[in-house]
């Protein structure tokens, strides 16, 4: 992620101040994001001159350029921004709330739950973004609740959560496959729905998702002061005045809502919510709030970067971004399983 360089960059802080500077990893992330946004807008199947695209952005230029920009590339980039930040922030919130660095909406079956619900929404109310998002949230919440409660009852190991997640998500994936097989018309592209893909996103969909994303982010921000205490352990945090149970439930709800936003836009997209928060935690050790800010910026970086790769790797053929993410994310996940637990909680 290129964030590791920031690890050594510590200003001499006054006691009680933030122990490290957020500025450098944030600025680096924003610069990276800007570069990726520009390249994503410039690169594509149809050869359109950069000058025409720039003109199209302000409403001028040839009709072909306007079409490519406003119907294809811009929605895709905006969807990547929304999904990337939603998934990364969702993952980190879940990890802190559950005290488990393996927690992520993808591994826990939250995304599959939301995906199944999105399909159900397409059956019930085809083409409507509102019900789609609402049901995605219900699905995400349901999956989170099942995985959390079962893994809490089953044991103490951090990987129990993942195992229960595997079981739960295979049920949801089977449901998704069943529906898609019987009603193939529901999804434009089966692979990009089940693996996650950005090509189906449209501006109206993004316009519905963005305010929900903003609400979810505001919710997480409001909870973040209390989330900082959770790494100290429940009893210590409670002694400091945190309503631990309430905070945990609210954080899990916010996390599920953010995952639902992403799934409603880009299908069952995996690994962003696992890779980015863990990379951020390794690079940044100054607390939950700084970590959330970094996830907000670096999440879309990963998603846009992988999407760009998916588009140019076998040009002119496009891969769903979920495929590239799996190639990047799965080895990271294996490495995460192999190493000793480390993080904001012992």
């Amino acid at each position: 992620m290129g964030l590791a360089a920031a690890r050594g960059d510590k200003d001499a802080p006054a006691a009680g101040d933030r122990p490290a500077s957020l500025v450098r990893p944030l600025v680096a992330g924003l610069a990276c994001l800007a570069a990726l946004v520009v390249s994503s807008l410039l690169v594509g199947n149809s050869a359109v001159a950069a000058a025409d695209l720039a003109a199209a952005l302000v409403g001028g230029g040839p009709a072909a350029a306007r079409l490519v920009l406003w119907q294809v590339r811009l929605p895709r980039v905006l969807a990547a921004l929304v999904c990337g930040s939603a998934l990364a922030v969702s993952g980190l919130t879940l990890q802190v709330a559950l005290g488990n660095d393996l927690a992520s909406p993808g591994l826990m079956g939250v995304n599959s739950g939301a995906g199944l619900a999105v399909l159900v929404a397409s059956l019930v109310a085809p083409g409507l973004a509102g019900p789609r998002l609402t049901l995605a949230f219900v699905g995400a919440m349901g999956a989170t609740a099942v995985v959390w409660l079962v893994s809490r009852a089953a044991g103490t190991s951090r990987s129990t959560l993942v195992l229960v997640g595997v079981a739960v998500s295979s049920v949801f994936s089977a449901g998704i496959d069943a529906i898609v097989t019987v009603r193939p018309d529901l999804v434009a592209d089966r692979v990009s729905f089940t693996l996650g893909g950005l090509q189906g996103a449209s501006l109206p969909q993004v316009a519905v998702a963005a305010p929900v994303l903003a609400a979810g982010l505001l919710g997480v921000a409001a909870l973040s002061g209390g989330l900082e205490l959770l790494p100290l352990g429940d009893e210590t945090a409670a002694g400091l005045g945190l309503d631990v149970g309430r905070w945990r439930v609210l954080a899990v709800c916010a996390s599920a809502g953010l995952a639902a936003v992403a799934v409603s836009l880009a299908g069952v997209i995996g690994f962003v919510g696992l890779v980015v928060p863990n990379a951020v935690r390794r690079a940044w050790d100054g607390g939950v709030r700084g970590g959330l800010a970094l996830c907000l910026v670096w999440g879309p970086c990963l998603l846009l970067g992988c999407d760009l790769l998916a588009r140019v790797l076998f040009f002119p053929y496009e891969l769903p971004v979920g495929l590239v993410l799996s190639f990047v994310g799965a080895p990271f996940f294996v490495w995460l399983l192999a190493r000793r637990r480390r993080g904001w909680r012992e």
Partner: peptide, 17 residues
């Protein structure tokens, strides 16, 4: 008590919650 991944100053600042 947990051994959280944070500095002493950060830990103590949580006392102000």
């Amino acid at each position: 008590l947990a051994v959280p991944d944070m500095t002493v100053a950060t830990l103590v600042s949580h006392g102000r919650y």
